[in-house]
Write a protein that binds this DNA or RNA. Structure first.
Lengths: 344, 344
DNA sequence: CTGAAAGCGCTTACAG
DNA sequence: CTGAAAGCGCTTACAG
């Protein structure tokens, strides 16, 4: 069945296709009588504009690509909701690309950027080498890039970004633990290749150093951002000769894994060990015990990232090339029941 | 900066644009010597095919739209991963539309179907009235529709679908509780408008009836598929004059909320109350206590749905119109520590 | 306010 | 194996 095109509408209405097009795009520039006739023809033919033709003609897709580790991480889910709440209203849809914890390499992401036409790309995560080559290509095609949540790499430092002060937040969380009397504090990172918890680890190390505490070998373990990875990593921590009294996790997902590992060992939280998370995902407040953590304004980050993207798209190459100052949004230390002073 | 088109490549290589196009799409039909010259010209001009033009010409976008309640629900996250694992390899990207627990009405979803060009639509959830009008339009445009996870509504019964036997699974879960000696068993649904837990509720009611147990008014409460909703709903359950000894939740997300509410009341799980979930999301195994639940093969559902979609797209209108028998995949009752016999 | 016409960048029969 | 040419469905200066 052939799809109805603008041509048959024009014929039926007895006008030119230009007029039909105008009725659709700038109705105010068409005489009412004509407009009504065209409206009628549209209804009677069952005409629906061909988005592909329109996109082609306009050189835009109204599609924004979002690159993130996993939509399954509740933190990114919330950021995504923030993004969506802004772009939906402007008629944009989202193409979501998951890097799945760095199993996807830079070439693949690059290929996606290049082949799939998107009006812009939001990077909430990066893959390890994420080269400058991809970036220059994107720039050349006028695809704006906006970065959320993390300073991803030196090559990306020039792009507009929105995130909390991760270093400071992690320092504050660590200081809180130190303030309660903990001295043996462990840290669960994402892993070597991932920039996602790098700043947080730095904040942790800064606070430990400032307090004169040594980070023993084996106290910083890799949880791979996942529940399972954190369970394994925490297992290692629990058999450490100088077993930590507190575990600070690079994100809440890993904190939930850590709590599970600790419970499995028959230990009590926070009686035997304290656990601190990062992100304040929705499960943090309902975990048992409830999880102390750093709250990030996830939705707000999403909204701001989206607004910058929309500006860049509208503003054309100028706006997209404009070296944006990073926008720093506030974080908050949320104290719940997973943290207490160390056992004597 | 003007983008390089096929024309300048042709010029530089001294061939026609048809030949350049062939090099890209059917290289075997071009003499090697010519092909090499074109290759060279492509590299030297930095040519990248214009996807918009290509899509327009071919009448395809290589985009599949997925409609689901929320990407944040770990169950749907996994289904999505299954879908992705199949379509990625075929060069498709996903446009994801979240209905956000039925706050979006059918018209909006319909508009998305109609305006955004997608080669097909996967419905993992529906909105309440989801009319036949949208469906016929989609059919008219040859957009295949495949349904995952649930029998959504009578109007959608004709479309190919993949899901577990929800009624039977819920019956088995309820029977297990009954077998342990529970008689006062509550059920937490999504809510009136949502079809998502309807079959599960039916299974629960069937099992109760078969055991000769009456479902008291107030034992079936609405949790809205969310953590917060389930906390509220469970709160009501705990003040019921005939307080249940077991709570069967329509999904794991709500079960986690129920567990939190019960803990908040100072009650013990499973000592005072048993909790049963549905889905087996990744947090079920790490919750405290670990959650007994019905496991759905989420990834497998995603993979199968995706394969049917791909077939429908390739097969053209015939395949898409073919009334598909629903594919039933196996579920599994997973027993962990949140369920025990009732207190005496 | 409306129409005739060019053109966006590609693909694809049709010839040769 | 290659080229000339039509055409996909729309938008947009340019005239009138």
């Amino acid at each position: 069945m052939k799809q109805v095109s603008i041509k048959q509408v024009a014929e039926l209405a007895g006008v030119s296709i230009a007029t039909v097009s105008r009725c659709l795009n700038e109705p105010s520039r068409v005489r009412e009588k004509t407009r009504l006739r065209v409206q009628d023809a549209i209804v009677r033919t069952g005409y629906e504009p061909n988005t592909l033709a329109r996109n082609f003609r306009r050189g835009r897709t109204n599609l924004i690509m979002v690159v993130l580790p996993s939509v399954g991480d509740p933190f990114f889910t919330e950021v995504l909701q923030g993004i969506r709440s802004v772009v939906d209203a402007e008629g944009y849809s989202l193409i979501i690309s998951e890097t799945q914890f760095n199993t996807m390499n830079a070439d693949e992401v690059g290929a996606m950027l290049v082949t799939r036409q998107a009006d812009g790309v939001i990077l909430l995560a990066s893959v390890f080498p994420f080269g400058g080559e991809v970036l220059t290509r994107a720039k050349r095609r006028g695809q704006p890039i906006v970065i959320g949540c993390e300073t991803l790499s030196a090559a990306l430092a020039d792009f507009p970004s929105v995130h909390i002060d991760n270093i400071r937040a992690a320092r504050e969380a660590t200081e809180h633990l130190l303030g309660l009397g903990h001295r043996r504090i462990a840290f669960v990172t994402a892993g070597a290749g991932s920039p996602l918890t790098r700043d947080r680890e730095e904040g942790y190390r800064e606070a430990m150093a400032a307090a004169g505490e040594t980070v023993r070998p084996g106290w910083v373990v890799e949880g791979g951002l996942s529940l399972e990875g954190a369970i394994r990593a925490t297992g290692d921590l629990l058999t450490h000769p100088e077993r930590p009294t507190a575990v600070f996790c690079g994100n809440d997902e890993m904190a939930l894994g850590a709590m599970h590992a600790i419970h499995q060992d028959g230990l009590n939280i926070p009686g035997d060990l304290s656990v601190m998370g990062f992100d304040d995902i929705r499960y943090a407040a309902t975990a048992s015990p409830t999880l102390s953590t750093i709250a990030q304004p996830a939705r707000e980050i999403g909204r701001r990232v989206a607004r910058r993207m929309l500006n860049a798209i509208d503003g054309g190459p100028d706006a997209s090339a404009r070296r944006g100052e990073p926008e720093i949004v506030p974080h908050r230390l949320v104290l719940r029941n997973s943290v207490a002073p160390p056992p004597d």
